[in-house]
């Protein structure tokens, strides 16, 4: 009567959303590759696609945690801008106004400032969400505007230049055995994020809170503190992303990050993480982030008007959420 067993690896594999998203991604690459094998399947295309996606990937790892708690963080793009501005200005400030020629000490200081700036916004988001119970959509919509405004106030509304050469050449455009350093950093962050989510108590509690907050509370999980830490994590990663963007573009840019938040959310949701909370994975997010990136790159290479890309992403996104919703409905009807 008590026949307790696990599912076979085959059942698990085919039951997982991640597999299907991976197949969609492979299919996209195959289609573009078949049309222009000479241009698509090259090291250069691979490198540029990876580099251009690194910053978004780091944002999306934090976003995955937030969405699994059934929350949302609209502020990540603005926090990225704010952290880039404070970091660049701080590095300039300790180098008489221009850090271009500064050394690694300055770079480390700049990194610290970027991380702390991100942490401050993340902490604010987390405290407001967890303590006041204001919906995360509203809290982070507020900090989305406020962080960008604060960044513009600090920089007088213009980009901040003076990024150290060693940072731009090292992290920004440097490579290690052919792999861009920016990609390596993003991959490391992603790997740690994936492991923590999948194997640790912190990850387990993240899922539990998103699945049933009241159950988590009654089980003795410190829900309030955990939520603060999750938004803090998203903020710190946005700070790191700001530093990475700084290294790559050699300037702390005010513009161009208005839709980072939506791109990150789209990647996370495409990757099979449920907006209702409780389910998802960082591995899925990696695949989900690359689907829009591959579409964009592919459209450029095969000569499709690139404005088709957001439309294509939109269709896939809505389909993905619809799929998730009907699956849940079917399950809960039992």
């Amino acid at each position: 009567m008590t026949d307790v067993r696990g599912r076979s690896w085959r059942q698990r594999l085919f039951g997982a959303n991640t597999l299907w998203i991976g197949l969609v991604l492979l299919a996209l690459i195959a289609v573009f590759g078949a049309i222009r094998p000479d241009a698509v399947l090259t090291t250069f295309t691979l490198q540029t696609t990876l580099v251009e996606t690194s910053v978004l990937l780091v944002l999306s790892v934090g976003m995955t945690y937030v969405i699994i708690t059934a929350g949302i963080d609209l502020s990540v793009g603005s926090v990225l801008v704010f952290s880039g501005v404070t970091s660049a200005m701080a590095m300039n400030a300790v180098n008489d106004g221009n850090a271009t020629g500064a050394g690694w000490g300055t770079v480390l200081f700049g990194l610290l400032v970027a991380l702390l700036s991100g942490a401050a916004w993340g902490l604010l988001n987390g405290l407001l969400v967890a303590w006041t119970r204001i919906p995360p959509l509203i809290v982070t919509l507020g900090s989305f505007g406020a962080a960008l405004g604060a960044g513009q106030l600090l920089s007088n509304g213009s980009n901040v230049s003076g990024v150290p050469e060693v940072l731009a050449d090292g992290l920004g455009t440097g490579t290690w055995f052919g792999v861009p350093n920016l990609v390596l950093l993003a991959a490391a962050v992603t790997a740690v994020g994936a492991l923590v989510l999948a194997t640790t108590r912190f990850g387990r509690h993240t899922y539990a809170i998103g699945s049933n907050e009241e159950a988590a509370r009654r089980a003795g999980i410190g829900v309030t503190g955990h939520l603060v830490r999750v938004y803090l994590l998203a903020g710190v990663l946005a700070g790191l992303a700001g530093f990475m963007a700084l290294a790559y573009f050699r300037v702390a840019s005010i513009t161009g990050h208005d839709t980072d938040n939506l791109n990150a959310i789209a990647g996370v949701v495409l990757g099979g993480t449920s907006l209702f909370g409780g389910a998802g994975s960082v591995v899925g997010t990696v695949l989900g982030v690359f689907i829009p990136a591959v579409l964009r790159k592919g459209f450029v290479i095969v000569g499709v008007n690139v404005y088709w890309q957001p439309i294509a992403v939109a269709i896939v996104l809505v389909a993905a959420v619809w799929f998730d919703q009907s699956r849940r409905k079917a399950r809960n009807q039992r």
């Binding site: 899922y207 998103g210 699945s211 049933n212 009654r218």
Partner: peptide, 8 residues
Amino acid sequence: DLAVAPDL
């Protein structure tokens, strides 16, 4: 009210 986490 079944205080369980349905996704776990």
